[in-house]
Write a protein that binds this DNA or RNA. Structure first.
Ligand SMILES: [Mn+2]
Ligand SMILES: [Mn+2]
Ligand SMILES: [Zn+2]
Ligand SMILES: [Zn+2]
Lengths: 148, 148
DNA sequence: TTACTAATGAATATGGTTATCATTATCATT
DNA sequence: AATGATAATGATAACCATATTCATTAGTAA
């Protein structure tokens, strides 16, 4: 089953209609490893599909976040960035964030060791603060190769 | 040496004049354990000091971040939140964030164990990606006692 | 005190995101 | 294939957090 079609089915569990904007946005994010801003996503789509509306980009991204297809995170410069969320558990990763150019580097080194500690921490914290832990964000920030 | 005076000295290494807005903002943040938004800070100050301007609150918070007195972090709801940064190394902590009411809980359990791993990870990542690591953010998100 | 000018705050601008609403396009039904 | 109900779109305007402008105020060295 080709990717598009598989997504279409997964997606239609959440919304009723499969549309061109939804297809091209999902397609773009699934093909890139970048952590794109709305501006970047819109600019990229506009080339191939000049009719697309900025509003729809926002709405669709929101939808995709709620449906669990993508992650959203504040970029520190006032905008959000989005990344395709792989459904493979293997591809869980954390971030290295440049505070100057806002570039985000994925890494998965030590994830096993980290995850063990993270899991343990989650359990204790959940009990101690009566908190229902749903996930975590771990990032290192600093200056990337170009910016330092 | 009382707190105010000590801050005044530390602060004046960064700016030339000690003013009422700077004093009350620094004082407020140093006394609370909350992670306050600008709106909350402004509202709180306005009671005691109705003349204060929102612009000055923004400017002063910016100054305090640059001077290393406070931390700023995006709250996930489009606003930033601020917390007083203790100069005691001991009080380094991470966050438990409620995705519903945006409450932030500090925790420092496992920080020693975490920090060891974190430090090791920092070194490897720095080498591997030619990245100058300046710090880290670790947070667990989920639902707090009231919201779950 | 005075003079210099950093800092303030009211007003305005900016920029990312959201709401409104008339129009369009999807898709189940025929 | 054509129809019709309505979900989705996109242009426009609103919203809201934050930044900028600039005339006025106030901290500080002299
Ligand atoms: Mn990533
Ligand atoms: Mn904190
Ligand atoms: Zn960079
Ligand atoms: Zn909560």
């Amino acid at each position: 089953m080709p990717g598009q079609l598989k997504w279409r089915h997964r997606f239609q569990a959440h919304v009723s209609r499969w549309t061109v904007p939804r297809e091209v946005i999902l397609d773009l994010l699934s093909r890139t490893s970048k952590h794109m801003s709305v501006k970047e996503i819109y600019a990229s789509l506009y080339k191939m599909y000049p009719g697309i509306g900025l509003t729809t980009v926002y709405r669709t991204l929101d939808l995709l976040v709620r449906a669990g297809f993508i992650n959203r995170f504040p970029s520190g410069d006032g905008q959000n960035r989005y990344e395709f969320k792989s459904n493979k558990k293997k591809e869980h990763h954390h971030h290295l964030v440049c505070i100057k150019c806002r570039k985000i580097i994925d890494y998965s080194d030590f994830v096993d060791e980290e995850l063990e500690l993270v899991k343990k921490t989650e359990e204790i914290l959940a009990k101690k603060h009566s908190f229902n832990v749903l996930g975590h964000n771990i990032e290192f920030y600093g200056l990337c190769e170009k910016c330092k």
